[in-house]
Amino acid sequence: MDTLNLRLQEDPPSRKGERTRGRIKVATARMLERLGYHSMRVLDITQEAGIADGLFYFYFKDKSDAALAVLSEFVEFMPPGGSVDSASRTAFETIRETNYRFIRLARANAGLMRCMLQVVDEHPDFSALVQKVNRDWYVRVSRSVIRHYPGGAVDEDAMLLMTYALGSMMDELVRRLVINPDQNLLKLTDKIVPTDNALADALSVIWYRALYPAAEIPKGLRGTAAKLDALSKEQPLD
């Protein structure tokens, strides 16, 4: 939502019609965040945008058309920007930054992410877009990780499956922490990872251990991440 608004303010389209369409999309994003997909009405969008209903229908067929335009843009924005294998960061730093940004994005757009889950079930084309964006991101991540191993040492399909599994873990945790809060999980995270920084540390240790099992975790991690690191160094069970 903020991205749409900033883009409209900082780089407004040259044509008036495009600017109006942008205003409607911003208003739709706000109503999706505030009211949810099913409760939102065209009237809510037009009142938020300060336009007549007739003008809305000049640009969009109905509320679903406007919602899909907004959510499709949001989905394509979701993967973190920049390189997943930056020379200026270590592999752990890249994983940690990516996880932290995803957590913060979810908190800032919980309503939009909730609407995504609703719309996926009703619109196959949108579901296909979400799956494509996710797969493209997982492929980028898995190829980046493979470059840290000797040639032929890692099976590409196995690494891609690992990345899917780790990404799905993040999706489900965010859903239960932010989108549809699970009170038991919230109590647990409040106890052991009370901040987003601590949560990102802990989850990134899990990612790093799975993707680079022979590598050492960087020193200086916050409490829970350090405990997870210590667990991985315990003696095997009988």
Rank of each mutant, 00 (worst) to 15 (best):
M1Y: 04
P12Y: 01
G22R: 03
I24L: 14
I24Q: 11
I24W: 04
T28L: 14
M31S: 08
L32F: 06
G36T: 00
V42C: 00
Q47S: 07
E48C: 13
A49Q: 10
A52D: 11
G54P: 00
Y57C: 15
F58G: 02
D62C: 09
S64G: 09
D65H: 08
L71V: 02
V75G: 00
M78Q: 11
T90N: 09
T90H: 07
I95G: 10
N109H: 15
A110N: 01
E122G: 10
D125H: 07
D125W: 00
F126K: 08
S127R: 15
R147C: 00
Y149L: 07
Y149I: 02
P150K: 04
A158Q: 00
L160H: 07
T163C: 12
Y164L: 04
L166A: 06
E172I: 04
L173P: 11
V174Y: 00
V178D: 05
I179P: 15
D182C: 01
L186P: 04
K187L: 10
L188G: 11
K191H: 14
V193C: 11
T195Y: 01
A210T: 14
G220D: 03
G220I: 00
R222M: 12
A226I: 03
K227L: 10
D229Y: 11
D229Q: 04
S232T: 02
